[in-house]
Design a binder for these strands. Structure first.
Lengths: 259, 259
DNA sequence: ACCTGAACACCGTTCAAGT
DNA sequence: ACCTGAACACCGTTCAAGT
Protein backbone atom coordinates (compact mmCIF):
# COMPACT_ATOMS: atom_id res chain seq x y z
CA UNK A 1 0.00 0.00 0.00
CA UNK A 2 1.71 3.23 -1.14
CA UNK A 3 1.18 6.03 1.36
CA UNK A 4 0.94 9.53 0.06
CA UNK A 5 2.07 12.21 2.50
CA UNK A 6 -0.48 14.99 2.14
CA UNK A 7 0.40 16.32 5.55
CA UNK A 8 2.23 19.63 5.96
CA UNK A 9 5.94 19.06 6.24
CA UNK A 10 6.09 19.03 10.02
CA UNK A 11 9.00 16.63 10.01
CA UNK A 12 11.05 18.91 7.79
CA UNK A 13 10.66 16.90 4.56
CA UNK A 14 9.52 18.81 1.48
CA UNK A 15 7.39 16.10 -0.20
CA UNK A 16 4.14 17.77 -1.25
CA UNK A 17 3.57 15.88 -4.55
CA UNK A 18 2.32 12.25 -4.39
CA UNK A 19 5.53 10.29 -4.05
CA UNK A 20 5.86 8.03 -7.17
CA UNK A 21 6.34 4.44 -6.04
CA UNK A 22 9.03 2.25 -7.54
CA UNK A 23 7.72 -0.62 -9.62
CA UNK A 24 9.29 -3.04 -7.15
CA UNK A 25 7.24 -1.75 -4.26
CA UNK A 26 4.02 -1.88 -6.25
CA UNK A 27 2.02 -5.15 -6.02
CA UNK A 28 1.97 -6.95 -9.34
CA UNK A 29 -1.73 -7.65 -9.13
CA UNK A 30 -4.19 -5.20 -7.68
CA UNK A 31 -6.34 -6.41 -4.81
CA UNK A 32 -9.34 -6.26 -7.13
CA UNK A 33 -7.79 -8.83 -9.43
CA UNK A 34 -7.69 -11.25 -6.49
CA UNK A 35 -11.40 -10.83 -5.84
CA UNK A 36 -12.45 -13.66 -8.15
CA UNK A 37 -15.41 -15.96 -7.88
CA UNK A 38 -13.04 -18.75 -6.85
CA UNK A 39 -11.58 -16.69 -4.02
CA UNK A 40 -15.04 -15.69 -2.81
CA UNK A 41 -16.35 -19.26 -2.84
CA UNK A 42 -13.17 -20.49 -1.15
CA UNK A 43 -13.55 -17.87 1.58
CA UNK A 44 -17.20 -18.82 2.07
CA UNK A 45 -16.27 -22.49 2.42
CA UNK A 46 -13.49 -21.62 4.83
CA UNK A 47 -15.88 -19.64 7.03
CA UNK A 48 -18.60 -22.29 6.86
CA UNK A 49 -16.14 -25.06 7.79
CA UNK A 50 -14.77 -23.12 10.73
CA UNK A 51 -17.86 -21.40 12.11
CA UNK A 52 -20.87 -22.94 10.48
CA UNK A 53 -23.16 -21.84 7.69
CA UNK A 54 -24.75 -19.12 9.80
CA UNK A 55 -21.44 -17.27 9.89
CA UNK A 56 -21.40 -16.96 6.10
CA UNK A 57 -22.78 -13.52 5.40
CA UNK A 58 -22.12 -11.18 2.51
CA UNK A 59 -20.75 -8.60 4.89
CA UNK A 60 -18.51 -11.12 6.62
CA UNK A 61 -17.07 -12.28 3.30
CA UNK A 62 -16.45 -8.68 2.35
CA UNK A 63 -14.41 -8.18 5.52
CA UNK A 64 -12.65 -11.50 4.97
CA UNK A 65 -11.60 -10.44 1.47
CA UNK A 66 -11.00 -6.81 2.32
CA UNK A 67 -13.75 -5.66 -0.01
CA UNK A 68 -17.09 -3.88 0.15
CA UNK A 69 -20.28 -5.96 0.61
CA UNK A 70 -21.74 -5.24 -2.79
CA UNK A 71 -18.48 -6.19 -4.47
CA UNK A 72 -19.17 -9.78 -3.48
CA UNK A 73 -22.23 -9.75 -5.69
CA UNK A 74 -20.54 -8.12 -8.66
CA UNK A 75 -17.28 -10.08 -8.60
CA UNK A 76 -18.77 -13.51 -7.87
CA UNK A 77 -21.42 -12.65 -10.42
CA UNK A 78 -24.20 -13.90 -8.18
CA UNK A 79 -27.67 -12.45 -7.94
CA UNK A 80 -28.39 -13.65 -4.42
CA UNK A 81 -26.71 -15.26 -1.48
CA UNK A 82 -28.50 -18.50 -2.38
CA UNK A 83 -26.50 -18.63 -5.61
CA UNK A 84 -23.34 -18.43 -3.55
CA UNK A 85 -24.60 -21.50 -1.70
CA UNK A 86 -25.10 -23.23 -5.08
CA UNK A 87 -21.45 -22.58 -5.88
CA UNK A 88 -20.32 -23.87 -2.48
CA UNK A 89 -22.33 -27.07 -2.87
CA UNK A 90 -20.86 -27.72 -6.29
CA UNK A 91 -17.34 -27.08 -5.07
CA UNK A 92 -17.67 -29.79 -2.43
CA UNK A 93 -18.96 -32.18 -5.09
CA UNK A 94 -15.54 -31.93 -6.71
CA UNK A 95 -14.03 -33.43 -3.56
CA UNK A 96 -16.36 -36.40 -3.85
CA UNK A 97 -14.86 -37.59 -7.11
CA UNK A 98 -12.83 -40.78 -6.83
CA UNK A 99 -9.60 -40.62 -8.88
CA UNK A 100 -9.53 -44.24 -10.02
CA UNK A 101 -12.92 -45.85 -9.81
CA UNK A 102 -12.71 -49.67 -9.67
CA UNK A 103 -14.74 -51.57 -12.26
CA UNK A 104 -16.71 -54.02 -10.06
CA UNK A 105 -19.73 -52.37 -8.51
CA UNK A 106 -19.09 -53.35 -4.90
CA UNK A 107 -15.64 -51.79 -4.46
CA UNK A 108 -16.72 -48.92 -6.71
CA UNK A 109 -19.72 -48.08 -4.54
CA UNK A 110 -17.62 -48.53 -1.44
CA UNK A 111 -15.03 -46.09 -2.78
CA UNK A 112 -17.69 -43.53 -3.69
CA UNK A 113 -19.39 -43.86 -0.31
CA UNK A 114 -16.13 -43.51 1.59
CA UNK A 115 -15.00 -40.48 -0.33
CA UNK A 116 -18.41 -38.84 -0.16
CA UNK A 117 -18.46 -39.38 3.58
CA UNK A 118 -14.99 -37.85 3.97
CA UNK A 119 -16.03 -34.76 2.03
CA UNK A 120 -19.21 -34.37 4.07
CA UNK A 121 -17.40 -34.75 7.37
CA UNK A 122 -15.07 -31.97 6.25
CA UNK A 123 -17.99 -29.77 5.14
CA UNK A 124 -20.92 -30.61 7.40
CA UNK A 125 -22.98 -27.66 6.16
CA UNK A 126 -23.32 -29.37 2.76
CA UNK A 127 -26.10 -31.56 4.14
CA UNK A 128 -27.98 -28.50 5.33
CA UNK A 129 -27.81 -26.99 1.86
CA UNK A 130 -28.49 -30.03 -0.29
CA UNK A 131 -32.12 -30.20 0.80
CA UNK A 132 -32.86 -27.04 -1.10
CA UNK A 133 -30.10 -26.84 -3.71
CA UNK A 134 -30.29 -29.18 -6.63
CA UNK A 135 -27.15 -31.01 -7.73
CA UNK A 136 -26.71 -29.61 -11.20
CA UNK A 137 -23.48 -27.69 -11.27
CA UNK A 138 -20.58 -29.04 -13.34
CA UNK A 139 -19.08 -30.99 -10.43
CA UNK A 140 -22.46 -32.16 -9.18
CA UNK A 141 -23.14 -33.54 -12.65
CA UNK A 142 -19.75 -35.20 -12.65
CA UNK A 143 -20.67 -36.77 -9.33
CA UNK A 144 -23.89 -38.17 -10.76
CA UNK A 145 -21.90 -39.54 -13.67
CA UNK A 146 -19.55 -41.21 -11.19
CA UNK A 147 -22.45 -42.78 -9.36
CA UNK A 148 -23.72 -44.29 -12.60
CA UNK A 149 -20.24 -45.43 -13.55
CA UNK A 150 -19.92 -47.20 -10.21
CA UNK A 151 -22.96 -49.39 -10.86
CA UNK A 152 -22.39 -50.01 -14.56
CA UNK A 153 -21.19 -53.60 -14.06
CA UNK A 154 -24.43 -54.50 -12.28
CA UNK A 155 -26.72 -56.66 -14.34
CA UNK A 156 -29.98 -54.72 -14.09
CA UNK A 157 -32.07 -52.24 -16.04
CA UNK A 158 -30.85 -48.61 -16.05
CA UNK A 159 -33.59 -47.37 -13.69
CA UNK A 160 -32.74 -49.98 -11.10
CA UNK A 161 -29.04 -49.31 -11.40
CA UNK A 162 -29.70 -45.63 -10.86
CA UNK A 163 -31.76 -46.53 -7.80
CA UNK A 164 -28.82 -48.48 -6.42
CA UNK A 165 -26.55 -45.47 -6.77
CA UNK A 166 -29.04 -43.11 -5.20
CA UNK A 167 -29.70 -45.52 -2.35
CA UNK A 168 -26.04 -45.69 -1.44
CA UNK A 169 -25.63 -41.92 -1.72
CA UNK A 170 -28.74 -41.57 0.41
CA UNK A 171 -27.32 -43.82 3.08
CA UNK A 172 -24.12 -41.79 3.30
CA UNK A 173 -25.97 -38.50 3.64
CA UNK A 174 -28.24 -39.95 6.29
CA UNK A 175 -25.31 -41.30 8.29
CA UNK A 176 -23.62 -37.93 8.18
CA UNK A 177 -26.76 -36.20 9.38
CA UNK A 178 -26.71 -38.19 12.58
CA UNK A 179 -22.95 -38.38 12.93
CA UNK A 180 -22.86 -34.60 13.18
CA UNK A 181 -24.66 -34.71 16.50
CA UNK A 182 -21.83 -36.58 18.08
CA UNK A 183 -18.92 -35.23 16.13
CA UNK A 184 -17.80 -31.77 17.13
CA UNK A 185 -19.08 -29.62 14.28
CA UNK A 186 -18.77 -25.89 14.69
CA UNK A 187 -22.41 -25.39 15.66
CA UNK A 188 -22.58 -28.43 17.88
CA UNK A 189 -19.60 -27.28 19.84
CA UNK A 190 -21.11 -23.89 20.31
CA UNK A 191 -24.29 -25.51 21.58
CA UNK A 192 -22.46 -27.67 24.07
CA UNK A 193 -21.17 -24.56 25.77
CA UNK A 194 -24.71 -23.20 26.02
CA UNK A 195 -26.41 -26.29 27.40
CA UNK A 196 -23.84 -28.49 28.97
CA UNK A 197 -23.45 -32.07 27.90
CA UNK A 198 -23.93 -32.92 31.56
CA UNK A 199 -27.36 -31.30 31.83
CA UNK A 200 -28.39 -33.06 28.64
CA UNK A 201 -27.45 -36.56 29.78
CA UNK A 202 -28.91 -35.88 33.22
CA UNK A 203 -32.24 -35.03 31.60
CA UNK A 204 -32.16 -38.18 29.50
CA UNK A 205 -31.30 -40.26 32.57
CA UNK A 206 -34.28 -38.78 34.42
CA UNK A 207 -36.55 -39.57 31.49
CA UNK A 208 -35.40 -43.18 31.43
CA UNK A 209 -35.84 -43.41 35.20
CA UNK A 210 -39.59 -42.92 34.72
CA UNK A 211 -39.72 -46.51 33.48
CA UNK A 212 -41.49 -45.50 30.27
CA UNK A 213 -38.50 -46.54 28.19
CA UNK A 214 -37.81 -50.21 28.79
CA UNK A 215 -35.65 -50.68 25.69
CA UNK A 216 -33.52 -47.63 26.34
CA UNK A 217 -33.01 -48.53 29.98
CA UNK A 218 -31.89 -52.05 29.09
CA UNK A 219 -29.34 -50.72 26.61
CA UNK A 220 -28.24 -47.99 28.97
CA UNK A 221 -27.79 -44.32 28.20
CA UNK A 222 -26.36 -43.61 24.73
CA UNK A 223 -22.69 -43.04 25.37
CA UNK A 224 -20.81 -40.80 22.96
CA UNK A 225 -19.20 -42.94 20.28
CA UNK A 226 -15.62 -42.52 19.17
CA UNK A 227 -14.63 -41.67 15.61
CA UNK A 228 -13.43 -45.25 15.16
CA UNK A 229 -16.81 -46.55 16.34
CA UNK A 230 -18.62 -44.34 13.88
CA UNK A 231 -16.41 -45.57 11.07
CA UNK A 232 -17.15 -49.12 12.09
CA UNK A 233 -20.91 -48.65 12.15
CA UNK A 234 -20.84 -46.74 8.90
CA UNK A 235 -19.12 -49.66 7.23
CA UNK A 236 -21.39 -52.18 8.93
CA UNK A 237 -24.52 -50.50 7.55
CA UNK A 238 -22.87 -50.15 4.15
CA UNK A 239 -22.11 -53.89 4.24
CA UNK A 240 -25.76 -54.65 4.90
CA UNK A 241 -26.85 -52.39 2.08
CA UNK A 242 -24.41 -53.86 -0.45
CA UNK A 243 -25.27 -57.39 0.67
CA UNK A 244 -28.95 -56.67 0.16
CA UNK A 245 -28.36 -55.18 -3.27
CA UNK A 246 -26.21 -58.14 -4.26
CA UNK A 247 -28.73 -60.66 -2.98
CA UNK A 248 -31.57 -58.98 -4.88
CA UNK A 249 -29.81 -58.25 -8.14
CA UNK A 250 -27.32 -61.11 -8.34
CA UNK A 251 -29.46 -64.01 -7.13
CA UNK A 252 -26.99 -66.51 -8.62
CA UNK A 253 -24.45 -65.57 -5.98
CA UNK A 254 -26.81 -66.61 -3.20
CA UNK A 255 -30.57 -66.46 -3.72
CA UNK A 256 -32.45 -64.66 -0.98
CA UNK A 257 -35.75 -62.90 -1.41
CA UNK A 258 -36.92 -59.99 0.73
CA UNK A 259 -40.34 -60.47 2.26
CA UNK B 1 -60.75 -5.36 23.54
CA UNK B 2 -62.63 -2.90 25.72
CA UNK B 3 -62.17 0.64 24.48
CA UNK B 4 -62.16 3.42 27.01
CA UNK B 5 -63.25 6.80 25.68
CA UNK B 6 -60.78 9.22 27.14
CA UNK B 7 -61.50 11.72 24.39
CA UNK B 8 -63.31 14.97 25.13
CA UNK B 9 -67.00 14.63 24.29
CA UNK B 10 -66.78 16.18 20.86
CA UNK B 11 -69.61 14.05 19.59
CA UNK B 12 -71.95 15.29 22.30
CA UNK B 13 -71.90 12.12 24.37
CA UNK B 14 -71.24 12.54 28.07
CA UNK B 15 -69.28 9.31 28.70
CA UNK B 16 -66.22 10.33 30.67
CA UNK B 17 -65.97 7.25 32.93
CA UNK B 18 -64.65 3.95 31.38
CA UNK B 19 -67.79 2.33 29.98
CA UNK B 20 -68.29 -1.00 31.86
CA UNK B 21 -68.65 -3.81 29.33
CA UNK B 22 -71.35 -6.43 29.67
CA UNK B 23 -70.06 -9.87 30.53
CA UNK B 24 -71.43 -11.13 27.22
CA UNK B 25 -69.31 -8.79 25.18
CA UNK B 26 -66.15 -9.67 27.09
CA UNK B 27 -64.06 -12.57 25.66
CA UNK B 28 -64.08 -15.55 28.02
CA UNK B 29 -60.34 -16.06 27.75
CA UNK B 30 -57.93 -13.20 27.36
CA UNK B 31 -55.70 -13.27 24.31
CA UNK B 32 -52.73 -13.73 26.59
CA UNK B 33 -54.07 -17.02 27.90
CA UNK B 34 -53.99 -18.34 24.31
CA UNK B 35 -50.31 -17.47 23.93
CA UNK B 36 -49.00 -20.78 25.20
CA UNK B 37 -45.83 -22.61 24.27
CA UNK B 38 -47.96 -25.13 22.37
CA UNK B 39 -49.63 -22.39 20.32
CA UNK B 40 -46.29 -20.77 19.55
CA UNK B 41 -44.66 -24.03 18.44
CA UNK B 42 -47.74 -24.93 16.39
CA UNK B 43 -47.64 -21.55 14.66
CA UNK B 44 -43.93 -21.97 13.94
CA UNK B 45 -44.53 -25.40 12.41
CA UNK B 46 -47.41 -24.05 10.35
CA UNK B 47 -45.25 -21.26 8.96
CA UNK B 48 -42.29 -23.59 8.30
CA UNK B 49 -44.51 -26.10 6.48
CA UNK B 50 -46.08 -23.44 4.31
CA UNK B 51 -43.18 -21.12 3.60
CA UNK B 52 -40.02 -22.85 4.71
CA UNK B 53 -37.80 -22.49 7.73
CA UNK B 54 -36.48 -19.12 6.63
CA UNK B 55 -39.95 -17.63 7.09
CA UNK B 56 -39.95 -18.54 10.77
CA UNK B 57 -38.88 -15.41 12.58
CA UNK B 58 -39.70 -14.18 16.05
CA UNK B 59 -41.34 -11.11 14.60
CA UNK B 60 -43.37 -13.13 12.13
CA UNK B 61 -44.66 -15.41 14.88
CA UNK B 62 -45.58 -12.37 16.93
CA UNK B 63 -47.71 -11.07 14.06
CA UNK B 64 -49.16 -14.53 13.48
CA UNK B 65 -50.25 -14.75 17.13
CA UNK B 66 -51.16 -11.09 17.49
CA UNK B 67 -48.48 -10.51 20.09
CA UNK B 68 -45.32 -8.49 20.53
CA UNK B 69 -41.97 -10.04 19.48
CA UNK B 70 -40.55 -10.30 22.96
CA UNK B 71 -43.69 -12.03 24.21
CA UNK B 72 -42.69 -15.04 22.13
CA UNK B 73 -39.61 -15.46 24.28
CA UNK B 74 -41.40 -15.03 27.59
CA UNK B 75 -44.46 -17.14 26.87
CA UNK B 76 -42.70 -20.01 25.09
CA UNK B 77 -40.08 -19.76 27.81
CA UNK B 78 -37.25 -20.00 25.35
CA UNK B 79 -33.92 -18.26 25.64
CA UNK B 80 -33.14 -18.19 21.94
CA UNK B 81 -34.71 -18.92 18.60
CA UNK B 82 -32.65 -22.10 18.44
CA UNK B 83 -34.57 -23.44 21.42
CA UNK B 84 -37.77 -22.86 19.48
CA UNK B 85 -36.27 -25.05 16.76
CA UNK B 86 -35.57 -27.72 19.41
CA UNK B 87 -39.25 -27.69 20.31
CA UNK B 88 -40.30 -27.91 16.67
CA UNK B 89 -38.01 -30.89 16.03
CA UNK B 90 -39.38 -32.73 19.04
CA UNK B 91 -42.98 -32.03 18.04
CA UNK B 92 -42.44 -33.71 14.67
CA UNK B 93 -40.90 -36.71 16.44
CA UNK B 94 -44.32 -37.28 18.00
CA UNK B 95 -45.72 -37.82 14.50
CA UNK B 96 -43.14 -40.51 13.85
CA UNK B 97 -44.49 -42.80 16.55
CA UNK B 98 -46.26 -45.88 15.20
CA UNK B 99 -49.45 -46.66 17.17
CA UNK B 100 -49.22 -50.45 17.06
CA UNK B 101 -45.71 -51.63 16.39
CA UNK B 102 -45.59 -55.18 15.02
CA UNK B 103 -43.38 -57.65 16.87
CA UNK B 104 -41.23 -59.09 14.03
CA UNK B 105 -38.38 -56.78 13.14
CA UNK B 106 -38.99 -56.61 9.39
CA UNK B 107 -42.57 -55.28 9.45
CA UNK B 108 -41.71 -53.20 12.51
CA UNK B 109 -38.81 -51.46 10.77
CA UNK B 110 -40.91 -51.05 7.66
CA UNK B 111 -43.66 -49.41 9.69
CA UNK B 112 -41.23 -47.06 11.42
CA UNK B 113 -39.55 -46.16 8.14
CA UNK B 114 -42.86 -45.47 6.41
CA UNK B 115 -44.21 -43.32 9.19
CA UNK B 116 -40.95 -41.44 9.60
CA UNK B 117 -40.92 -40.74 5.90
CA UNK B 118 -44.50 -39.45 5.97
CA UNK B 119 -43.69 -37.08 8.82
CA UNK B 120 -40.59 -35.80 7.06
CA UNK B 121 -42.42 -35.25 3.78
CA UNK B 122 -44.95 -33.17 5.71
CA UNK B 123 -42.22 -31.21 7.52
CA UNK B 124 -39.26 -31.04 5.15
CA UNK B 125 -37.44 -28.47 7.31
CA UNK B 126 -36.91 -31.15 9.97
CA UNK B 127 -33.97 -32.52 8.00
CA UNK B 128 -32.39 -29.10 7.88
CA UNK B 129 -32.64 -28.81 11.67
CA UNK B 130 -31.65 -32.31 12.73
CA UNK B 131 -28.03 -31.80 11.70
CA UNK B 132 -27.57 -29.37 14.55
CA UNK B 133 -30.29 -30.27 17.03
CA UNK B 134 -29.86 -33.41 19.04
CA UNK B 135 -32.82 -35.75 19.43
CA UNK B 136 -33.32 -35.58 23.17
CA UNK B 137 -36.72 -34.07 23.82
CA UNK B 138 -39.46 -36.26 25.28
CA UNK B 139 -40.81 -37.28 21.87
CA UNK B 140 -37.36 -37.71 20.38
CA UNK B 141 -36.52 -40.06 23.21
CA UNK B 142 -39.77 -41.92 22.64
CA UNK B 143 -38.75 -42.25 18.99
CA UNK B 144 -35.41 -43.76 19.94
CA UNK B 145 -37.23 -46.16 22.23
CA UNK B 146 -39.46 -47.14 19.31
CA UNK B 147 -36.46 -47.79 17.10
CA UNK B 148 -35.02 -50.15 19.70
CA UNK B 149 -38.39 -51.83 20.17
CA UNK B 150 -38.59 -52.43 16.43
CA UNK B 151 -35.36 -54.46 16.39
CA UNK B 152 -35.84 -56.28 19.70
CA UNK B 153 -36.74 -59.61 18.02
CA UNK B 154 -33.47 -59.63 16.10
CA UNK B 155 -30.98 -62.13 17.41
CA UNK B 156 -27.90 -59.96 17.82
CA UNK B 157 -26.00 -58.06 20.49
CA UNK B 158 -27.50 -54.74 21.66
CA UNK B 159 -24.92 -52.59 19.86
CA UNK B 160 -25.58 -54.30 16.56
CA UNK B 161 -29.33 -54.06 16.99
CA UNK B 162 -28.98 -50.37 17.68
CA UNK B 163 -26.89 -50.03 14.53
CA UNK B 164 -29.68 -51.69 12.55
CA UNK B 165 -32.19 -49.15 13.82
CA UNK B 166 -29.92 -46.20 13.14
CA UNK B 167 -29.10 -47.50 9.67
CA UNK B 168 -32.76 -47.66 8.70
CA UNK B 169 -33.48 -44.23 10.17
CA UNK B 170 -30.44 -42.97 8.33
CA UNK B 171 -31.70 -44.35 5.06
CA UNK B 172 -35.06 -42.63 5.46
CA UNK B 173 -33.51 -39.25 6.22
CA UNK B 174 -31.15 -39.57 3.28
CA UNK B 175 -33.99 -40.45 0.92
CA UNK B 176 -35.96 -37.44 2.07
CA UNK B 177 -32.99 -35.16 1.56
CA UNK B 178 -32.94 -36.02 -2.10
CA UNK B 179 -36.67 -36.40 -2.55
CA UNK B 180 -37.08 -32.76 -1.57
CA UNK B 181 -35.32 -31.67 -4.72
CA UNK B 182 -38.01 -33.15 -6.85
CA UNK B 183 -41.00 -32.76 -4.60
CA UNK B 184 -42.38 -29.26 -4.40
CA UNK B 185 -41.21 -28.05 -1.03
CA UNK B 186 -41.85 -24.44 -0.19
CA UNK B 187 -38.31 -23.34 -0.93
CA UNK B 188 -37.92 -25.47 -4.01
CA UNK B 189 -41.05 -23.99 -5.49
CA UNK B 190 -39.79 -20.54 -4.84
CA UNK B 191 -36.53 -21.43 -6.53
CA UNK B 192 -38.23 -22.80 -9.59
CA UNK B 193 -39.78 -19.42 -10.23
CA UNK B 194 -36.37 -17.79 -10.00
CA UNK B 195 -34.46 -20.10 -12.29
CA UNK B 196 -36.87 -21.88 -14.51
CA UNK B 197 -36.93 -25.65 -14.64
CA UNK B 198 -36.44 -25.23 -18.38
CA UNK B 199 -33.18 -23.32 -18.08
CA UNK B 200 -31.94 -25.91 -15.61
CA UNK B 201 -32.61 -28.92 -17.83
CA UNK B 202 -31.26 -27.04 -20.84
CA UNK B 203 -28.00 -26.46 -18.99
CA UNK B 204 -27.78 -30.12 -18.03
CA UNK B 205 -28.50 -31.15 -21.60
CA UNK B 206 -25.70 -28.91 -22.84
CA UNK B 207 -23.32 -30.39 -20.29
CA UNK B 208 -24.14 -33.90 -21.43
CA UNK B 209 -23.73 -32.88 -25.06
CA UNK B 210 -20.04 -32.25 -24.40
CA UNK B 211 -19.57 -36.03 -24.38
CA UNK B 212 -17.85 -35.96 -21.02
CA UNK B 213 -20.71 -37.86 -19.43
CA UNK B 214 -21.08 -41.21 -21.21
CA UNK B 215 -23.14 -42.83 -18.44
CA UNK B 216 -25.56 -39.92 -18.08
CA UNK B 217 -26.04 -39.64 -21.82
CA UNK B 218 -26.84 -43.32 -22.14
CA UNK B 219 -29.44 -43.09 -19.38
CA UNK B 220 -30.80 -39.86 -20.77
CA UNK B 221 -31.55 -36.68 -18.88
CA UNK B 222 -33.01 -37.23 -15.41
CA UNK B 223 -36.71 -36.81 -15.85
CA UNK B 224 -38.74 -35.63 -12.86
CA UNK B 225 -40.13 -38.65 -11.06
CA UNK B 226 -43.73 -38.91 -9.90
CA UNK B 227 -44.73 -39.34 -6.27
CA UNK B 228 -45.60 -42.97 -7.02
CA UNK B 229 -42.14 -43.52 -8.51
CA UNK B 230 -40.49 -42.06 -5.46
CA UNK B 231 -42.56 -44.32 -3.19
CA UNK B 232 -41.53 -47.28 -5.29
CA UNK B 233 -37.83 -46.51 -5.18
CA UNK B 234 -38.00 -45.75 -1.49
CA UNK B 235 -39.44 -49.19 -0.87
CA UNK B 236 -37.00 -50.82 -3.26
CA UNK B 237 -34.01 -49.42 -1.38
CA UNK B 238 -35.61 -50.35 1.93
CA UNK B 239 -36.07 -53.90 0.64
CA UNK B 240 -32.37 -54.07 -0.20
CA UNK B 241 -31.44 -52.78 3.21
CA UNK B 242 -33.72 -55.19 5.10
CA UNK B 243 -32.58 -58.07 2.92
CA UNK B 244 -28.97 -57.25 3.68
CA UNK B 245 -29.63 -57.02 7.40
CA UNK B 246 -31.50 -60.30 7.34
CA UNK B 247 -28.80 -62.06 5.36
CA UNK B 248 -26.09 -60.86 7.74
CA UNK B 249 -27.87 -61.37 11.04
CA UNK B 250 -30.09 -64.35 10.27
CA UNK B 251 -27.76 -66.51 8.20
CA UNK B 252 -30.00 -69.54 8.72
CA UNK B 253 -32.67 -67.95 6.54
CA UNK B 254 -30.32 -67.75 3.57
CA UNK B 255 -26.55 -67.55 4.08
CA UNK B 256 -24.85 -64.83 2.08
CA UNK B 257 -21.67 -63.08 3.03
CA UNK B 258 -20.79 -59.54 1.93
CA UNK B 259 -17.35 -59.21 0.42
C1' DA C 1 -20.89 -0.53 -18.65
C1' DC C 2 -19.45 -1.91 -14.57
C1' DC C 3 -18.97 -1.03 -9.81
C1' DT C 4 -20.45 0.57 -5.15
C1' DG C 5 -22.14 3.83 -1.14
C1' DA C 6 -26.04 4.83 1.12
C1' DA C 7 -30.41 3.46 2.26
C1' DC C 8 -34.23 0.24 3.13
C1' DA C 9 -36.64 -3.23 5.27
C1' DC C 10 -35.82 -6.64 7.69
C1' DC C 11 -33.43 -9.80 11.54
C1' DG C 12 -32.38 -11.84 16.89
C1' DT C 13 -31.54 -10.22 21.18
C1' DT C 14 -30.31 -6.88 25.19
C1' DC C 15 -31.79 -4.14 28.58
C1' DA C 16 -34.00 -0.73 30.99
C1' DA C 17 -38.37 0.66 32.02
C1' DG C 18 -42.81 -0.45 32.99
C1' DT C 19 -46.65 -3.14 35.60
C1' DA D 1 -41.60 -10.94 39.50
C1' DC D 2 -42.96 -11.07 35.19
C1' DC D 3 -43.57 -8.84 30.92
C1' DT D 4 -42.32 -5.68 27.02
C1' DG D 5 -40.99 -1.18 24.28
C1' DA D 6 -37.22 0.79 22.50
C1' DA D 7 -32.75 0.27 21.07
C1' DC D 8 -28.68 -2.15 19.27
C1' DA D 9 -26.01 -4.55 16.17
C1' DC D 10 -26.53 -7.04 12.79
C1' DC D 11 -28.71 -9.06 8.12
C1' DG D 12 -29.65 -9.34 2.37
C1' DT D 13 -30.68 -6.51 -1.22
C1' DT D 14 -32.27 -2.19 -3.95
C1' DC D 15 -31.08 1.60 -6.28
C1' DA D 16 -29.22 5.75 -7.49
C1' DA D 17 -24.98 7.77 -7.98
C1' DG D 18 -20.50 7.42 -9.20
C1' DT D 19 -16.46 6.05 -12.47
Amino acid sequence: MPRRSALPAEDGSTAETPEPSLVWTRPATTRRAALTREAIVAAAIRVADAEGLAAVSVRRLAIELDARPMSIYSYARIESKEELFDLMVDEVCAEMLVPDLPDPWRPALRAVATRTRAALLAHPWWVELIGRNVLLGPHGTRYQEQLLAAVRTLDADPKTKQAVGVTVETYVVGQITFALDEQGSAETEHRSTTRSRQAVSQYQRDLIATGEFPQLSSVGPPEPSSAADRDRYFNLGLDWLLAGIGASLEPDAGPHRAD
